[in-house]
């Protein structure tokens, strides 16, 4: 098993090197004629206004909280799913009760408007 994880480690290193090599090699052959106007920040000649790195309102921040809740629920459910074949019927019913509670929560959030784009 350690060998298997070592392979993933090697793959990570190789992927990082290959990913970084392309831009670095490209730097050797590409032209470099930077003029100030070229380095300005714009999109289709529309310059940006003011600071970008400010507090930015993500309209879906309630959804992110819901996402965190469901991710934790998924972490609870995955070990059960892994052992499902060896478990008795009552564990399945217990998990179904848990999932129904989750669904109830989702319906409540839906009614409250937490799933909307604010």
């Amino acid at each position: 098993m350690l060998n298997q994880f070592a392979f993933i480690g090697f793959l990570l290193i190789v992927a990082l090197i290959l990913g970084a090599a392309t831009p670095i090699l490209a730097r050797l052959v590409r032209p470099q004629k930077a003029i100030p106007r070229k380095l300005e920040m714009d999109e289709c000649d529309m310059r940006t206004h003011g600071e970008t790195w400010v507090e930015f309102k993500a309209q879906y921040y309630t959804l992110v909280i819901v996402f965190l809740l469901f991710d934790v629920a998924a972490v609870f459910l995955l070990p059960w799913a892994l052992a499902y074949n060896t478990l008795e019927l009552y564990t399945a019913i217990e998990v179904i009760a848990f999932i129904l509670m989750l669904l109830g929560g989702l319906v409540y959030l839906w009614r409250k408007g937490a799933l909307e784009w604010l």
Partner: peptide, 26 residues
């Protein structure tokens, strides 16, 4: 793509800007 000029905007965070595609490919 390889030989095209690659200009990093002067106001950008160079490290984060340049490493984002590498992370993507990795």
């Amino acid at each position: 793509m390889f030989t095209k000029e690659d200009s990093v905007p002067a106001t950008a965070d160079r490290w984060v800007f340049n490493s984002a595609p590498v992370v993507c490919v990795t």
